[in-house]
Amino acid sequence: MKRWSWILIVVLLLTTVLTACGGKQEAQTEKIRLALILPSTIDDMAWSQSMYEGVMAVQKEMGEDKMEVAVSERLGNPVDAGAAIRQYADQGYNIIIAHGSQYQNVLEEIAPDYPDVSFAYGTGYEAHDNIFAYDPQAQEGAYLQGIIAGMMTKSNIIGVVGPVEAGDAIKYNYGFQQGVEAVNPDAEVRIAYTGSFGDIAKAAELAKAHMDAGADFLTGTAQQVVGAINAAKEHGGVYWLSNDMDQSSLAPETVISAQVYHWEKVVQQIIDAHQKGETGKHIVLSFANGALELKYNPQLESQIPQEVKDAVEQAKQQIIDGTLTVKLPEN
């Protein structure tokens, strides 16, 4: 017990010394100060990286003198995320984006204490006074990718490498299944989960099992899929449909298309709303408003038959004008 008092004394001493020699931070009012809370890392080649690049794009557009960005990574659990969000709010950040559906709860708890700060999270739907909820319609792009897979598959077996059966993974898989079903009722979509978001070795093994079982098209979500993509690349003869961001740089010969989220549009919208003093709203990312995009990998585009592209284009138009609604699970 005695040595704890020693530590306390020294810590307090250090505290005073360090406080004394530290400078003061100038507060600037005109500058937008944006803090980004990420569950994974800025280089995960998936969900977190795509948002990070979106924010960076906005910052580049606005200029670094107009916008300051702070990033905190690896805050997958709500406890540490809550501490980070509170600290940013305390330090006077104007906009705090917590990039994950798991942060809804934390924001609802913190936001009322900081009415001047705009908070945002997603995937989510519950917006409040100063909470924005952004909501990528992952099922829409998934549907289009389902069409590609359904029309092009030769084995009629399509494998999904899922993380945990929840949130965006459900939306994506559900839309994907509908897309396949619409063009090729004989094809079988086999959905399996690794039970983890980041275990790339397990994802690779799951992809191998899918391929050994005859799958010639694969897709999946979360940062774990980089392992599966690489396994598909090494296996050869199969295609990967990527989500979150364009992952074709990992495997240019394998990743045939990608559903890309244009986060910069969301971030810009939040900044604009904040500057105009608007209250929080539900921001949808869809094909209709151009925040979602289906990209073909230019290297493989020639391998996609024109009729497939036409079918995708047609479905996309129907989704945009509302004649086709991709369903979400109901119960």
Partner: peptide, 26 residues
Amino acid sequence: WQLMIYFLRGPMIDPKERSYGTGVPQ
């Protein structure tokens, strides 16, 4: 952990998550 996830996304999930289709396990 797996048990908890099972209950959170299954029997104990927030009905709102289910009705909206987001399925966040809470």
